[in-house]
Amino acid sequence: MASVASRRTLIGGMTVIGLVVLWFGLTTFTGLVTGARFPSPAEFWLSLKQINGRGYAGSTLASHAFHSLKLVLMGFTVAVLTGVPLGLWMGWNRRVEAFINPVFLIIRPIPPLAWIPLAILWLGLGDAAKILVIWFSAFVPSVINAFTGVRNIDKPILEAARMLGTPRLRMVREVILPASLPMIFTGLRLSLQASWTTLVAAELVGALVGVGFVLNMAQQDIYPGMILVGMVTVGILGWVTTLLLARVERRALAWNVAARD
């Protein structure tokens, strides 16, 4: 197994090196792609130095990134704290599902990004509008996966818990919640992805700070180097937060055979 894993790393590393060589080749060495279309590595580096030094679009990269990260985490947290309990409740209680499901069926086909204009109209260009939109987009996967998690619980497990005389609250905390946890985490991963997508879109449309705002300004300034900086930053932020979530998941699901590996 170890040799397969290391071979995979090797191949992956070669792909990355190949891409960098291709990047140099197409821009700096041959000039097939001009700096007006896509920045060369040198231009990218200069843009990075500029935004880290003097700043760009009002502040440094770190503070843009920090601001975006903060909004994503806030929106994601609100979405999870509301969505997971609702999904569990719907899964457990068919009457609740009957009440709420129609609302879902109406709202679900509306892409979360379509809420952005309304959110800006209500709450302006500040943080509140963005958190609201992230909430809309991250809420749905949290609800649906928590719901599915409850519905897919092995029936004998519930019967065993009832046979043991498990009272209601303990049933939720020690049986239903952990049994649904693998599906809940699937929902959280999708919610996190949705949070980043929505935030960048919202910042592109209207913002005064943030990575999406950097992208928007760089586009208006026709500044490909800075656009790439913004893109790479969002990519890294998304990657790191996903990695952290996966680590939490591994710890929370240590008992789960399917989650190991």
């Binding site: 092995d154 004998p156 497990i157 019967e159 065993a160 818990a161 009832r162 046979m163 043991l164 005389g165 020690e174 049986v175 952990p178 049994a179 946890l181 008992w255 789960n256 055979v257």
Partner: peptide
């Protein structure tokens, strides 16, 4: 009328709580 610990069940598929 309802399940209860006075009638303990052993299931074919064990039905243990995997997280416990």
């Amino acid at each position: 009328t309802a399940p209860g610990p006075d009638r303990a069940v052993v299931f074919q598929q064990f039905a243990l709580f995997p997280w416990k």
